[in-house]
Design a protein around this nucleic acid. Structure first.
Lengths: 224, 224, 224, 224
DNA sequence: AATGAATGAGCCTTCATTCAT
DNA sequence: CATGAATGAAGGCTCATTCAT
């Protein structure tokens, strides 16, 4: 059953890869420098001249590739949003998950959590930029909202319904189930980064404990 | 049992009220305008001249009351952090909660959630500023970290341990219990604000469902 | 033979004493602070608020006594110029010098040099201000020019002519004689202050040597 | 006998020529305008916007070439100090003077006086700036002090000692001899500029008279 | 007389963007 | 394509001066 918006999805991923994949070495250096500086000082406080300097190019060169400073931001923040959602976009994702009928939800959560946490660690600075700038750039906000409402949520909804049919998840609206899971994992990551940035903890263990809490909550009674 | 750092607490709250409470009408107008604009555009993109215009004062007047633009920011973001933690600071808080021995954890969570959610709704813009600027201003970060590690967490730890003794909460490290609860409620708020800003939902119902999930998780089995 | 401009002279000295001598304690504090700061940073770089602070008065108080910042400067720099010339203004000065017919020029130079050097040391900051600001304030320049051309020079001219009649000074134009003497003593002071500010030297000895050079020059021959 | 610090001297002179001599036409216009305005109003009272206007460039252009306003000042006042001392720096100077054994001191004084007076007339505004700003900029002061103590004085000392051996100059400390000569010529110039700015006098005659006074002083006796 | 909050013009400096080379 | 000098608008901040109290 081919997905109806498969084309858009393909397009999205292609774009997320970067502008047609054609990137000169200087463009790459500019982007890397921009990520570094936007993430460190925020978009508004970053200066194009500082980016140019760090990239080792002339100030004018940036504007040959990106019409405005904001353009440069969007060409960074847009794709990273898409990439963040990428696994949920690919057709194989749902297929892989749903076909393994005997799988336990815990395993699904563990798989997604590990994968996206690795992604977040790898692209920490990019995500920092995305999160900070979203509120100030409506286009960005709109793009991310669409991405998650129309794609990520729709895919996850199917999967959640599937597990509810199997009796592995309570009968709550899928969006609330999803929100609960996401909240716990995001909370976990944020705590690590903001509250204890240098406390190197056993992440696998953390994930297990979080999944436990996600599945059974704080109440001890049923655990007999 | 008088708390050892009661004095500091009092000092904190007094400061949170504002600098000695002595604020001229113009200072208030400046602060209001600054909150509006900082929250709308972010600190770096806000201009003091725009703030002055919105406040209906001369630009120089701002700098008579706040030595620098950053000073103005800190005099907004600092106190709001303290106020956010205020209920956990006051001695009566712990007392009130712990003295009612027969109370259920759910009632505690409900009480705190409703109170702080109301606070967040009321001071939405202030909190927006605080959250956005924290990563770019180490002093702010340090202040908030201290506040939560030394005050909020220490108070909540006692309470959580109390409920664990009573057998109402599983034997997990208090910080993980706290993080779980906070994550769920913050996730709830953020979803509302960012994803569905104009969807007016039954908040009491939402809180009940969130508490349910917090206590029993997604797994349906134990519910017999 | 009463001097023709004796009235003006009296007026000048009265003014130099200060505005009618009526000075409140606050005015004095303002003037002292202004001298300190004008001398340290220069007129243009000094700020009235800093002066007010140092004087321990409100900013507005300065402007109650001196209409503008420049007024404040002139009320400092004007009188000091007059005071610097004061001994030459007073009638007794010429009288005392001329009446002692048998006096040697060297004794005259020594007397004036010691007196004015002491004055310069005492009012160092005031003179610093005067010298620095003269080129930027035509009124000041005009005042000082008048003072020296019409008063100091006229008095000294008589005295120089007197000593030339006596054969103690060569037959050169009095203005050149005066300039030579002033140059040597000013050069002596300036060297001390600018080139070797902390070299505490025997000033009396310095004066003697300078007078020697003034009288006999660098050529050794005649000294037999 | 090659001088020990010949290298430094060369470096100094190269710097005095200007930063590598590479100056765009706009830089030159900026410098000229800055000299004009600094000299007219003083550094602190001059505004960069006025300089830009007079130079016919945008205000931002100034700051592309000189990081700060003070930078602009130093790039004007520094080199002029070096240039003022330049003749004393060059090796040929001492050589030329000392090799002519039969030369009279008067001729030496005449040569230097004419040369440096011409220089002063040509760079009048530059020197005005240097003199006015020295007391407010310690770096400048230090630079000029070093220049004169370590270079000018050391060269002149040799020459003065040479003429003392020849019996043409009295046995006084060289610094005092130098100071006396400089004082008289500076006094001559200053009188011209400050007291009688528009009195066009026979400068050669003035120099001769000044040399006379320098050599024989005011006392008429020895002139038989 | 003294105060000090308020003003708004002006200052130095930065920055995104353009364009001739 | 790339450069970097040039721009000029805008920014944060200071300051002399005024005026109601």
């Amino acid at each position: 059953m081919p997905d109806q918006n498969e084309k858009w999805v393909t397009e999205l991923l292609r774009l997320a890869e970067g502008d047609d994949g054609k990137k000169t070495e200087k463009q790459v250096r500019i982007l890397e420098a921009a990520v570094e500086i936007f993430s460190e000082k925020g978009f508004a406080a970053a200066s194009t001249s500082e980016i140019a300097q760090k990239a080792g190019v002339a100030e004018g060169t940036i504007f040959r590739h990106y019409k405005t400073k904001k353009d440069l931001l969007l060409s960074i923040a847009g794709p990273i949003a898409t990439k963040l959602a990428a696994p949920f976009i690919m057709r194989e994702f749902a297929a892989k998950v749903l076909d393994i009928r005997h799988e336990r939800v815990e395993d699904l959560f563990r798989m997604i959590a590990k994968d996206r946490l690795a992604f977040a660690r790898k692209h920490y600075k990019l995500l920092r930029i995305l999160i900070h700038e979203i509120p100030f750039h409506p286009e960005l906000m709109a793009q991310v909202q669409t991405l998650f409402k129309e794609i990520v949520f729709q895919r996850m909804e199917k999967i959640i319904l599937h597990f509810q049919e199997q009796g592995q998840i309570i009968e709550a609206p899928p969006w609330r189930v999803l929100r609960t899971a996401v909240s716990l994992f995001v909370g976990m990551v944020v705590t690590r980064l903001l509250i204890l940035p240098d406390d190197p903890i056993d992440e696998d263990e953390e994930i297990e404990r979080t999944i436990d809490l996600l599945m059974h909550g704080l109440s001890p009674k049923p655990r007999v």
